[in-house]
């Protein structure tokens, strides 16, 4: 084994993201360091507006003006992401790193059928035929629990949760090394959520991809993430293995987060 195997898959150092707004500079991410190992699930939780989605977009260089990465470095699988030329970037996205966007159910193109959206990603990156793409799409859809007969539906004909599952399946389509999931299951019922996440764990064990998992559901985070990072106002205030962060939170904000979570109370008959 070479030493690159030992190195983390993702290395983020001193990442700073600014928004150049009409009213001046707003720094949404204020110098953030973290790593993600191969096959690891890193959870990212924290305040709304603290910069989680901004980090996710920056990792894939999908951030758009007025956002700029003003400082720091991002390395994924030994490649300097910030130095990649556009051509490499286009090829790298989706095949090496894919993303499920927050509010993913609206990231589908409303004028294309579900199959056409799979086809776009699969054919562009793999050179598979339309028929092969169809087979792969059917396989992926079945995996996430939607009847393949719905491949020819348009997004608005599916429920929010079904659309969310479709977006997840598209992110899995090309066996990437890292999948960024920005609240991937918020629109799903807990039964389907559990089935999909267990399926993702099984796929992860099989293919070895890593996950950056953003959610507001702390209980789910504890079940799914290996380590959890807590964000507050553009900074990471605490990073620790899940069990430790749950049992023994160090930062005051982390403690407050756990404290405000409404818990299900079940008084049996």
């Amino acid at each position: 084994m070479t030493s690159t195997i030992q190195k983390p898959l993702v290395e983020v150092r001193g990442l700073k993201v600014d928004f150049l707004t009409a009213k001046g500079l707003f720094t949404a991410v204020k110098g953030v360091d973290f790593t993600i190992d191969r096959g690891e699930v890193l959870g990212l939780a924290g305040e709304s507006g603290s910069g989680k989605s901004t980090i996710a977009l920056a990792l894939m260089r999908l951030h758009r003006p007025p956002a700029i990465i003003s400082e720091g470095s991002i390395t994924v699988d030994g490649e300097d992401v910030l130095a990649m030329p556009e051509s490499r970037l286009r090829q790298w996205r989706w095949s090496s790193v894919s993303m499920v966007f927050q509010s993913a159910m609206n990231s589908l193109n409303p004028v294309l059928t579900i199959f056409e959206q799979f086809r776009d990603v699969i054919v562009q990156h793999t050179g598979k035929t339309r028929q092969q793409a169809r087979e792969r799409a059917e396989e992926l859809l079945t995996m996430i629990g939607i009847a393949p007969s719905r491949l020819d539906d348009y997004p608005h004909q599916l429920s929010g949760g079904m659309r969310q599952r479709v977006v997840l399946a598209i992110a899995l389509a090309l066996d990437p090394k890292l999948i960024i999931m920005d609240e991937p299951t918020t629109a799903l019922d807990v039964v389907v959520q559990r089935e999909i996440l267990e399926e993702i764990v099984a796929l992860k064990d099989k293919f070895g991809f890593a996950i950056l998992f953003i959610t507001h559901d702390l209980a789910l985070m504890g079940q799914f993430a290996d380590r959890i990072a807590i964000m507050l106002e553009g900074r990471l205030v605490e990073v620790a293995p899940s069990a430790q962060l749950i049992a023994n939170p160090q930062h005051d904000y982390t403690r407050r987060l756990w404290g405000s979570m409404p818990l299900l109370t079940r008084v049996p008959a």
Partner: peptide, 9 residues
């Protein structure tokens, strides 16, 4: 569902 737990509360 998209709010952090403290705001959700």
């Amino acid at each position: 569902s998209m709010l952090d737990v403290s705001i959700r509360r």
